[in-house]
């Protein structure tokens, strides 16, 4: 049965829902769930002070009925199960998650899916800065799983990404894939300036050639079987790669000894 969190009133401060997962709430009674302490502004309050909790102890997905951009850390650390948010979320949604699914009907703040290692995030609208990136002070960004952004992404998307897949249906802001270590980021719309600086490995899939740093070398247009394979095997890339058989391969950031690639489909 679906576990539901419904805000009691509009939040007066930022709330950190890190670690509030379906697995946690399915193991608790409603009374116990209400006493789970969550950071709220500068102090900690019971989950029951912020939300009406329905069906705690249920085994279904966790639904947050009214989203809010002050709800941080939604699904952070998720290992399994599903979280559905009917509205926007704040920063750090899905940060460090290793499995399960997070579906967000609105926008997301910064660090969406940062350092995640598995699972899937479906964002219906726009993401803030550093989605799929490394957290503040960390050296490595997301290493596995999928972030699907149906709107646009802010600056520094996939910064230091080292695995997994990020797909953006809209545009990506400046500094896309800065210092990317590995993995794949695909952007269907336009790409902001300074993309790919410091890329070591990894792949950027784009429709049109973005403005790239001087360390990128154009190897020309090539027939790539891998595009056909990914179009069929990876459902999230099917739309972008549909019927694509060739791409311009721009390799970099060679000034940093990198062997990453930007594949330009158009």
């Amino acid at each position: 049965m679906t576990i539901t969190l419904k805000p009691v009133a509009p939040f007066t401060a930022r709330v950190d829902l890190s670690g509030i997962t379906p697995a946690l709430l399915s193991a608790l009674s409603r009374r116990d769930a209400e006493y789970v302490q969550v950071p709220h502004g500068g102090r900690r309050v019971g989950l029951g002070d912020l939300f009406f909790i329905e069906n705690a102890g249920g085994d279904g997905p966790l639904v947050i009925e009214i989203g809010d951009d002050r709800l941080d850390g939604v699904g952070a650390g998720l290992g399994a199960g599903e979280i559905i948010v009917d509205g926007p979320v704040g920063a750090f949604a899905g940060m460090g998650m290793s499995g399960g699914v997070i579906r967000i009907a609105g926008n997301a703040g910064d660090y969406l899916g940062a350092e995640m290692s598995g699972g899937r995030i479906e964002l219906a609208r726009d993401a803030g800065a550093r989605a799929g990136a490394a957290g503040s002070g960390s050296r490595r960004g997301m290493s596995g799983g999928v972030i699907r952004i149906h709107g646009s992404a802010g600056p520094r998307l996939a910064e230091r990404q080292r695995g997994g897949l990020v797909v953006v249906a809209g545009d990506a802001g400046e500094g896309l894939a800065t210092d990317m270590i590995a993995g794949t980021a695909a952007v269907e719309g336009s790409v902001g300036p300074l993309a790919g600086r410091g890329m070591k490995r990894g792949t950027l899939l784009v429709r049109n050639a973005p403005e790239l740093p001087a360390g990128f070398v154009d190897t020309g247009r090539h027939d790539l079987i891998a595009l056909r394979l990914m179009a069929r095997r990876v459902k999230d890339l099917a739309h972008l790669l549909k019927d694509a058989t060739a791409a311009r391969r721009i390799v970099g950031d060679t000034l940093m000894g990198g062997q990453g690639e930007v594949l330009v489909l158009g």
């Binding site: 596995g144 999928v146 695995g163 997994g164 897949l165 590995a182 794949t184 490995r201 792949t203 790539l224 891998a226 394979l229 990914m230 095997r233 990876v234 062997q259 690639e261």
Partner: peptide, 15 residues
């Protein structure tokens, strides 16, 4: 050293 690995989901392939 020029090999490229792609792992998406649980499947890895090489180019």
């Amino acid at each position: 050293g020029h090999q490229i690995s792609k792992k998406i989901g649980s499947k890895r392939f090489w180019r």
